[in-house]
């Protein structure tokens, strides 16, 4: 069992770094815009933002190949953008419009894309974990090279079905990367108050699944750990657990009393560990890019996000006849 040692940094590649910067920034700006639209009443229900956790999906997607699948919880906007789904379609689902990925029927928590092998967007804590292993089962059954990524939170890591899944995934050597996004809180319950052992990467030990703790705020560390985990899975050795140490900057969902942690705690992470600032420093400090280059990227991203928001507010609501469609598939 690998202990929580720091994985070796992947070699610095300027273009890759710029891509990471661009992708993480897209998620952050997209989420800020979503928060704003929510404040204006254009998004309803629950809306869980991914701000602070961007490096995880971006770093892991670097190891994904065509055909790999991913599945996650309700905190899903970042995962969708990172696997290449269209920001317009994601935002329009948040506003419940016809142009959304689920044509307005799913909302923020329930979105899917067969094309991008994104299997949701699940509202029930922990339910996506066996589903992720099931996607891996299909890969194993078909004998292809693909792996699946099953993302879940530190709170979800206590659900019983996670351990049933671990046992079978290991028993059958399913190519599944279990990604625990440990942002330290499950709603208002801190990790310490909900978990008898806080080292979540060891949770597969009883089932013989290797696990590793990773600095989830460092996109290069994430990428390196992801590459290792994926190689393990693709080579037929079975599942792998990555515990990503991260932090959510915003409330659990839109309104959150924010009394379970101090503003100083949040500010400290923002100041010292921000994943986007980190890459910005690598780029500028390493003379791979100038401030002006990054400003140009900021501008470009801003435009993408504004276009997504415009699309999401202009796309019409679904036709009323849609109420009764999509309940069952037609046999053919």
């Amino acid at each position: 069992m690998a202990a929580a040692k720091k994985p070796k940094k992947a070699n610095l590649d300027k273009d890759e770094l710029l891509d990471f910067y661009r992708e993480m920034l897209l998620i952050r700006r997209f989420e800020e815009k979503a928060g704003q639209l929510y404040g204006m009443g254009l998004i309803g229900g629950f809306c869980h933002l991914y701000i602070g956790q961007e490096a995880i999906v971006v770093g892991l997607e670097a190891s994904a190949i065509e055909g790999d699948q991913r599945v996650t919880s309700y905190r899903d906007h970042g995962h969708m953008l990172a696997c290449g789904m269209d920001p317009k379609g994601v935002m329009a689902e948040l506003t419940g419009r016809e142009g959304g990925y689920s044509r307005g029927k799913g909302g923020s928590m329930h979105m899917f894309s067969r094309e991008k092998n994104f299997y949701g967007g699940h509202g029930i804590v922990g339910a996506q974990v066996p589903i992720g292993a099931g996607l891996a089962f299909a890969n194993w059954y078909r004998g292809n090279d693909n792996v699946s990524f099953a993302y879940f939170g530190d709170g979800a890591a206590n659900q019983g079905q996670v351990y049933e899944t671990f046992n079978m995934a290991s028993l059958w050597k399913l190519p599944c990367v279990f990604v625990i996004e440990n942002n330290k809180y499950a709603m208002g319950t801190s990790l310490q108050r909900g978990s008898s052992t806080p080292e979540l990467y060891t949770r597969g030990a009883a089932f013989g699944i290797p696990g590793e703790a990773v600095d989830g705020m460092d996109v290069l560390a994430v990428k390196a750990a992801g590459a290792k985990a994926v190689a393990h899975c693709r080579s037929g050795k079975g599942p792998y657990i990555l515990e990503m140490n991260t932090y959510r900057y915003r409330g659990h969902s839109m309104s959150d009393p924010a009394k379970y942690r101090t503003r100083e705690e949040v500010q400290k992470v923002k100041d010292e560990r921000d994943p986007i600032d980190h890459v910005r420093e690598l780029l500028v400090g390493g003379k791979h890019a100038t401030e002006a280059d990054l400003k140009a990227i900021d501008k470009e991203i801003k435009k993408v996000v504004i276009e997504a928001a415009d699309f999401a507010t202009q796309s019409p609501e679904p036709e009323l006849s849609e109420l009764y469609t999509d309940i069952l598939a037609e046999a053919n």
């Binding site: 309803g44 229900g45 689902e93 419940g96 419009r97 689920s102 307005g104 029927k105 799913g106 909302g107 329930h110 609501e317 679904p318 009323l320 849609e322 109420l323 009764y324 309940i327």
Partner: peptide
Amino acid sequence: GKDVPMPYAANL
């Protein structure tokens, strides 16, 4: 209620 899973869109 109608015989459908609850839709998200406001009008539905």
